[in-house]
Design a protein around this nucleic acid. Structure first.
Lengths: 320, 320
DNA sequence: CTGAAAGCGCTTACAG
DNA sequence: CTGAAAGCGCTTACAG
């Protein structure tokens, strides 16, 4: 029998007699035949591979995203190539080029893209891309993200409710759009409550436990020590917790600390972290659907789907 | 000019006049031409993609491995497809089949493979595979792992030195070779010191914080409560820490807890975890080299490279 | 319903 | 030194 017929059988195309079809399946089984994705991709079919760009897989927030993406992808027959960018523009470009050469079917971007040219370039190539947990405001791409402004607001309300007035903010680089929004929401809510956030009480540093610890230590030892610190992610909050421990400042009695993301880290510290959780699985589900299932109109109207963050109260915050 | 010449220029093959070569580069640049990895892979060249099989990317130990693999791979032009298996045999087989169809250049396996047939099958297909942090004793494959027996022994010595005699072990499923070895090393060392490990003091459960917590709680509330618990990984140790906190048992004063792996989790708890660290980056480096650079003889003599674990003393253990 | 033929974008001898 | 030709393993019209 001809290879064309085999191809038809595998793809369930054309009309092939039941008898022949069954025979083909039998032989395939016996020969342990596995069609080459490579060859079929060459003919313009999909590669069933997607790229996932994130700052760092070993950062719990992103490793949780990666796991979620992976599960969804595998369940639909896709594999995922993970790329940790460290938020570096040159790495981002390099990885995108790599993914392009490998003809991936789409790229999920969870890392800040400063240089919009990269995205523009992708858009031209009509490579399907979706931003997740980030956005690129000026670019025509889909994005699925948490309402960071709202998240910041939630954190502020919680602290205000607990009677805090002398509050500090520990953020990662404010160039990262999500962090910027969190701080903005936080600040705005304090403002509405008539509380001013002292400029010297907003500090930003790299997103790591170590840097968070150092920055928090400065806040703790500075004059006019805050009674509460809002950290833009759990990593920084863990750093703040450690700084407090070193300084023998009791959390939450003497200092309330609130994190963001709701990663595994927030459940592991002692005291456990009060944090603003992001609905990771839901975000991933929506983003993946946009990426792969190309909803009708999807190409025309770029969607911006905003999910609701949730305040999870644990042990690291209390009333004054 | 012909496409053959272009191909030669790109691959630095054949003799092409300098003039022509430069012209080709210029045009490539102008057209933003990127050769298709797909097509070149079809001709039997490499796909520059490797697979990484691990139980779970969102588990810190494995996400740290994934990051390390990724960095190394990218620096050599490879991308990595991450596959979380949850240690399930059917998932393992499915992912391996998928990777095979995608013609990856090699697979790094960091998950237990119960069913040796899968590996045998791969070996026949002459797909390059290397085990990392695990081994498949009966199979002719390279493996790079930590000396788990030694790690268990290190933990035992530490506890013995601190005067502990009533000791318990919290392990993940003993079918996982690495866990089995850790317990064996631990037990053997106690035995040599004349300490017997009560059978009821060896419990195993799934490798998660929640299950670790539950199992540890049973140990803590059981009669003849141990003065120290050796946990086969940091996740379980975190669970034990939480169980102790719930039971108002002070760590380390009333209960010493020691973990394994040396992940980020061990630095984040309070008290910080004493743990046995694995040299992740070194393991990954060696494993990747075996996988890709096919050292001479590598195909004949299957290597088993064993790295040394290191005891990191922090706050969760103390003298009786 | 089935199979011969062309083509996807490359690489590899090989003839000139 | 350069280019025409065959082929990698598939898919897709299309003729029979």
């Amino acid at each position: 029998m001809s290879i064309a017929t085999v191809s038809n059988v595998i793809n369930g195309k054309g009309k092939v007699s039941k008898k022949k079809r069954e025979e083909i399946f039998r032989v395939m089984e016996r020969l342990q035949y596995r069609p080459s994705v490579i060859a079929s991709a060459l003919m313009g079919k999909k590669t069933f591979t997607i790229g996932l760009l994130i700052p760092d897989v070993s950062n719990p927030f992103f490793s949780e995203i990666a796991r979620s993406v992976e599960d969804l992808a595998h369940s639909e027959g896709y594999s995922v190539i993970v790329c940790s960018t460290d938020n570096k523009d040159d790495r981002i470009e390099k990885y995108i080029r790599l993914l392009e050469q490998k003809s991936v079917d789409g790229i999920l971007i969870g890392t800040g893209v400063e240089n919009a040219d990269v995205l523009r370039h992708l858009a031209e190539k009509s490579l399907s891309i979706v931003m997740i947990a980030r956005e690129a405001a000026t670019m025509p791409v889909h994005s699925v993200l948490t309402d960071d402004f709202k998240g910041g607001a939630l954190a502020a309300e919680h602290l205000i409710d607990r009677g805090h007035r002398r509050i500090a903010v520990l953020s990662e680089n404010l160039k990262v759009s999500s962090s910027f929004e969190r701080v903005r929401g936080f600040r705005f809510t304090l403002f509405e409550a008539g509380i001013t956030l002292d400029e010297s009480h907003i500090v930003s540093c790299d997103s790591s436990i170590r840097d968070g610890k150092r920055a928090a230590a400065a806040l703790i030892h500075g004059d006019n020590r805050p009674s509460a610190i809002f950290c833009c992610n759990d990593l920084l909050a863990v750093g703040a917790l450690q700084a407090a421990k070193d300084a023998r400042v009791k959390v939450p009695e003497q200092l309330s600390i609130i994190g963001f993301d709701g990663t595994i880290l927030s459940t592991v510290t002692n005291p456990e972290l009060t944090t603003i959780a992001q609905p990771i699985n839901q975000m991933v589900k929506l983003a993946f659907d946009l990426l792969i299932h190309k909803v009708e109109n999807a190409d025309e109207i770029k969607q911006r789907i905003v999910m609701q963050p949730e305040l999870i109260i644990r042990e690291s915050t209390c009333s004054l």
